[in-house]
Write a protein that binds this DNA or RNA. Sequence first.
DNA 1: CTGAAAGCGCTTACAG
DNA 2: CTGAAAGCGCTTACAG
Lengths: 364, 364
Amino acid sequence: MHMNNQQATIKDIAKLAGVSIATVDRVLHGRGRVSPEALTAVTNAIETLNYKPNQIARALSARRSKIRIGLALPNVESDFWGEIIFGAEQAQKHLEPFGVELISEYSYSYEFEDQVKSIKLLLERDIQALIVTPLYDGFGNVVGSHIPSSIPYATMINDLPSSNRLFHIGPDDFAIGSLAARLTDLYCQGKGNVVILAPNHSMIETQNRISGFMSLINQDNLNISVQRIVPVPGKTEQVMYNEIMKSTEECIRQFPDIDAFYVTNGLTEWCADVVAANNCQQKIKIIGHEVTQKTCTYLQNKVVHAVIYQRPALQIYNAINLMFDYLIGNISKPESNIISDCSIIIKENLGFSHIGGQNNYGYS
Amino acid sequence: MHMNNQQATIKDIAKLAGVSIATVDRVLHGRGRVSPEALTAVTNAIETLNYKPNQIARALSARRSKIRIGLALPNVESDFWGEIIFGAEQAQKHLEPFGVELISEYSYSYEFEDQVKSIKLLLERDIQALIVTPLYDGFGNVVGSHIPSSIPYATMINDLPSSNRLFHIGPDDFAIGSLAARLTDLYCQGKGNVVILAPNHSMIETQNRISGFMSLINQDNLNISVQRIVPVPGKTEQVMYNEIMKSTEECIRQFPDIDAFYVTNGLTEWCADVVAANNCQQKIKIIGHEVTQKTCTYLQNKVVHAVIYQRPALQIYNAINLMFDYLIGNISKPESNIISDCSIIIKENLGFSHIGGQNNYGYS
DNA sequence: CTGAAAGCGCTTACAG
DNA sequence: CTGAAAGCGCTTACAG
């Protein structure tokens, strides 16, 4: 006898509906043709027994056919994208018993064309879904147009809002820009001259961070004066590296009464290199983004004062899991825009913050 | 033919070792008697094929016998413990297909004796493991002695370091005390008089937070002067509520030049109630712990300035999953002391911080 | 000490 | 349109 405090199984509803489990399965997935009578009988049985498919059994069974998810990612700033890769590996490990295979293609620059190549390669390998951090060229072209509509895809970190992506996961850039302004205000003790260093300046994400930054200053009437917003050019690690060093150096010269740098992206450590080299760390605070190994040291030494950490490993881990749940039918349609939880990292919480995706039992 | 890029299964190693899968299983779990020859053959096969048991299949099979995990938790401050319950429900949902059943017993006070009763009730219900936030009486008695050694148990939030608990998960209280001092310093713009309000004052966790707070002041030579440390008595919500209101009121009277309160525990909102009622929010900053609904409002209104959030839902979610992994043999011995990642919550990141365990795709 | 068999709950050909 | 059967990879009695 079936205990009624147990979860009903497909067998239970087959029995109650007076059909075979194959028919129940057909109803559950809406595939194959089912007679109207069978359909209602099964639907009712599902209702009365409050049937929830067992995901484990579903997964074990699904193992017979591999699920391939492609990842098209830049691999430029090594700490940041390395953490993404780590998160993908965690997801891989977690989903391997479910028959999931991840196929990665990296572009070693922020060039749009490189990414288009990556996506082509992935599509040749018979992937069922794709996760991409979309890059842009200067002409409004987006990678979405290179993905056939049969392949569901998600964006991560950078969005393609008007595309037909399945979902996007990433920070609220405007909000973290405001947060950066607050941190700047706090570390400047309520008064200071700031220069904003903006790599990837033309990207909408960067623009939003800057807007958020300016907005809080206005809204809260902060005594923070933005001396200049400096676009830092470059689409490869080497060029960006040289350019941000140069820009930092110039700003230190040009603005002798500067109190803080706000670096809008993960290149914070290179700005810090220059500030430390010029021995200005007492005078100039640095507020930035992301956590790299060197940034940790600079936080310890009080060269960098606060960074906003978007937890890249967790983002891709979640993106992959969400895509899997979608492919396997656990969820019919994910939330379209998932805002990542970003952490404030300062010297005093560095020790217990789960950096690099390590030690987070929530996903390992 | 077995593709060598596929994970080996128990069948593969059985074939290679020339035994049945039952024997392989015996070797894997060290149960039953196995001949030395079979043992080495299987061990070698496992080695050569780099065999990893499929957790999904294991779980599906394990479903035939329920796993019962007991939770002995206080349920006093409703927002905080409510979030714990939410996290447990998430874990329940996640692990239900694995045949896991959670059995909760709550104590509606922080009284040691109430918790001992809870544990007795749980033990009567044939649980295989236990997770507990241990309470203390005034005589050094601990709940560990009430748990038979056959039942593995974990502590959460409060530790029993010298007990034979399997693992502990919780914040580094000393470190978050230091973090609180830094936040106080920042919001006081580098100078201020502080009163520490300390509910659960006698608990080692509270003591550690206070030590951490004082320690950073000394170590970094902060211009923060702690006017007084006020123990707030009470072991039930009602009493604690009255007492912290009273203490806050008295401090506002007694220390007219106070710049900030540091509330060492999750009762921050009640301190804020009094500060707001006395219209002191312009003058007195509040730094505290945990996030409640009212605290969110107070953060918005700048009555409370910063709280340190230990993510209770995530902690119990992780504790339950870890215990499950241990029971099912996925991990032989968890790390003994797992430091939770605590978040800084301020007005500017309230909007995108995943509060209450909601929206965290890492565990739902 | 060992192996054949049934079963966990689902999916997927296959044969009607 | 429908159902019996095999299978996903493991565990658990049961019979030798």
